[in-house]
Simulated scan of single mutants.
Amino acid sequence: MKLQRKNRLRALSLGAVAVTGALTLTACGSDDMGGSTTGDSTASANSKIDCGDAKGQLLADGSSAQKNAIDAWVKQYTASCKSVQINYKGGGSGAGITAFTQGQVAFAGSDSALKPEEVAASKEVCKGGQGIDLPMVGGPIAVGYNVPGVDSLVLDAKTLALIFDSKITNWNDKAIKALNPDAELPDLKIQPYHRSDESGTTDNFTKYLIAAAPDQWKYEGGKAWQAKGGQSAQGSSGVAQGVKSTEGAISYMELSYAKDGMTTVDIKTGAPDPVKATVENATKAISEAQVVGTGKDLALKLNYTPTAEGAYPLTLVTYEIVCDKGNKADTLPATKSFLTYIASEDGQGLLADAGYAPMPEEIITKVRSTISGLS
């Protein structure tokens, strides 16, 4: 365990680069075409990125939770591999998987692993192979809120379930008061926001509620929101904007979207103290994940009810979904080169500064080996 801990800390620190600016990337056919570069594909003298034979345009879609990470990676990668243009549209996990199984993108990002029927559909695109899940980005699902005068807030799974099921409707409710005896909770209507699109973030958030508050959350879960009431918005950026602009609002989003003064909830778990939504605390929980995929698939089973001190229970892992065999010849070199970079120590080293958690060393080592064998 000490060695694993050392490796995780090393992954957090190695190659950390301050991420400045944001590269806005959208899919082909939209107004903004990010990541476009020209020139040869030889890596610069100061870069460890191996461009190989990578060239041309790489289209991808999927998880909006990882888009800030993808933007940071693309900025570094295309600075070295100047013959590659990468366009990632963060249209949500559902949209990404659909685009992948229809053969529209080279790879997709999803905050949930492929379902059996999606694997079956992928075999039509991956000639002689199938789609596989490569865990690449981790992080906490922050619960952001906008309650004037309340700078610190503790909630547990049961209370969150009742809030997002519209059973607790006011911020001075006795259940919230019991968890926050020192807070000046206002007589203010709660405005819960959920995702309008099919989302792996929704899937992971509701898996947490199902696991930690089964008596309060009676829904099946999945990428589509099922509870009644509340307001909806498109993508992680949409729900984050809803919280920022609406007094009384609360929503779930990847931590990198909970910025610009937004306050996040501390989650009460089985540990003695409530746990903050931080990269480090998410890594503690993700380190308990188990690989449950078979063959080259590296799908993980997360622990949504950790009791270890400082382990944040509301986490997600974003997978890059790609064909293990049967990738298109014109995109395979760029796909392998880019995925190799983002799984490298340098690529994973960017994540902490961007608000994400690197994959534990024992998991990312398997990812690197799998990428090297893509064909």
Rank of each mutant, 00 (worst) to 15 (best):
L314H: 02
N146W: 00
K174M: 05
K2A: 15
S93E: 08
K127L: 03
V322A: 07
G373F: 02
S80F: 07
S369A: 15
A224M: 14
D40E: 05
A45I: 06
I176V: 15
K336Q: 13
I168A: 14
E184V: 04
K177D: 05
S199V: 05
A354K: 15
G200I: 11
D40A: 03
T263V: 06
P116C: 09
P272H: 07
E254P: 13
A352R: 15
A157L: 00
V243E: 12
V279I: 04
L160Q: 14
T169W: 03
M359G: 02
V279T: 11
E280C: 07
Q4P: 02
A54E: 03
G310S: 03
D187A: 10
V317D: 00
N146C: 04
D133K: 12
A289P: 00
E345L: 04
G229W: 00
G310W: 02
G295T: 05
S236M: 05
W217A: 00
N146R: 08
T37F: 03
A113E: 07
A343T: 09
A334Q: 09
A142W: 11
K218I: 03
Y219K: 12
T169N: 14
L339D: 08
S13L: 07
T335Y: 02
G200A: 10
T202Q: 15
Y88E: 08
I49Y: 06
M136T: 10
Q231P: 00
L188A: 08
A22D: 09
V367S: 05
A240G: 15
A258D: 13
S112K: 09
K366T: 06
A224L: 10
S13K: 06
K127Q: 12
G128F: 00
A240N: 11
L351N: 15
S236V: 03
A79I: 01
Q76F: 05
G109M: 04
G200Y: 10
T264P: 03
N327E: 14
D324K: 13
A54K: 09
G52H: 10
I86Y: 08
A27F: 06
I168M: 13
T263Q: 13
S13I: 00
A121H: 03
L188P: 06
K75A: 10
K259E: 14
L134Y: 12
L300Y: 04
V150E: 13
A157N: 02
L316F: 14
C323Y: 01
Y304H: 09
A311W: 07
A271L: 02
Q4D: 15
Q57A: 07
E118S: 14
V243D: 12
K276L: 08
Y341A: 14
K207Q: 12
I190T: 09
I49W: 11
V292Q: 15
T370Q: 14
Q290S: 09
K284N: 01
V147Y: 02
N172W: 08
T26G: 01
L179Y: 07
I176G: 07
A311V: 08
T78E: 13
Q85K: 15
A211G: 05
E118L: 12
V143Q: 04
A240I: 11
E254T: 12
E345F: 03
L374P: 12
D203Q: 04
S196D: 13
D31R: 14
A60S: 15
T169L: 09
G238T: 09
T246V: 09
S122R: 04
A161I: 00
V19W: 02
C28H: 10
S369G: 15
V74L: 04
D133C: 13
V74F: 03
